[in-house]
Amino acid sequence: MDLLSPKISVEYVQNATITTLTDQKILEQADIQALENSIMPLVDSSAKINLIMDFSNVKFLTSAVLGLLIRISKKVYESQGRLRLCGIDAKILEIFKITRLDRVFEIYEDRYDALQGLK
């Protein structure tokens, strides 16, 4: 497992790249920029990436993180990859529902569910 600057850890499981967000709260613009700087190169470095983002450590985030997820998803889909989110706390899932982003993102209970059916 690689530990990147300390906002995410990265694992390669089967044919997927699993990024686990390590912070409990993602608030500051600098945190969001650090996440973007860590994740975008992963997407760039792999054509048709199967990217799973594991939120199980995250207890709080703001709409700026939703914006980052939109940017990541656009980049993933441009390269014909797939993006799946998992481990989302019930309170944070409510934010996805209020903004209707639960319809935009593929959201799974945990990383094991998220790994199912990826080609």
Partner: peptide, 11 residues
């Protein structure tokens, strides 16, 4: 829906 900003007031 796929814009990266504009959700703050809604929340």
């Amino acid at each position: 829906l796929c814009k990266s900003s504009g959700r703050g007031v809604l929340l």
